[in-house]
Nucleic acid binder design. Structure first.
Lengths: 111, 111
DNA sequence: CCAATACATCGTTTTATCGCGATATGTTTA
DNA sequence: TAAACATATCGCGATAAAACGATGTATTGG
């Protein structure tokens, strides 16, 4: 049995989210469950690449998978993931406004 | 000028956090500003490795750096980072209790 | 039951990341 | 100003991750 520790899971969750395509997939799936056949044409990546990214998100407990006939449907497993992403965005926005402020200060000091 | 977009920053922040040593560094720095000379002996990694990880956290806007004489001090730049980590932990804990529940269900079905 | 559809997986190439020792840089102390 | 100290950076080998086309595996419609 693969012993699960919070530390290991933390890294896995964060790594799973550290990829632009996977973040876009999550945003896309924020709209609800979707089959791979819908997802692929919505992205400018090969079928195998999308399949792999979906699988990574699934392996790391971010997405749930459900097979219906010849289709495979993916959905967000735990909506908490969006709280997490909101926190990331909050920090990103802080970083941007920090730069903006630095710009203003510089601008003011030039006058 | 390196155009900053929220999407880019998101990935950078998440990538910066996707490493066990860097997460440990953040936990260590939760105790407040520390100089590298204190940090290094607290970790079982080479000086160059720790220096690099600190630099990655700094480059990605997670840590602030301050030079005082021949020492360099690092500190958490934005305490929001801990909210982010709390959200990650919440998801990790959900994943663990999900497994625990699956175990209980299995256990019950055996009886 | 054969062809088509929907995905997953494999094998390969390219690119990034980790860790380390060695070396460079900058600061202070003697 | 030379030695010592504190830290960053370089260069490299090893490992992992990303992308893609090709191939494998179910499932279903005809």
């Amino acid at each position: 049995m693969s012993q699960k520790s919070v530390s290991d899971l933390r890294i896995k969750i964060l790594s799973a989210l550290s990829d632009p395509t996977r973040l876009e997939l999550l945003e896309y799936l924020a709209g609800g469950e979707r089959c791979v056949c819908e997802i692929i044409p919505a992205f400018s990546r090969s079928q195998s690449t999308i399949s792999k990214h979906l699988n990574i998100l699934h392996e790391n407990g971010i997405l749930d998978r459900r097979i219906d006939g010849k289709r495979t449907l993916y959905r967000i497993k735990n909506p908490r993931i969006f709280n997490l992403l909101k926190e990331v965005d909050a920090i990103a926005l802080d970083q941007i406004s920090e730069l903006t402020n630095a710009g203003k200060i510089l601008e003011a000091s030039i006058k």
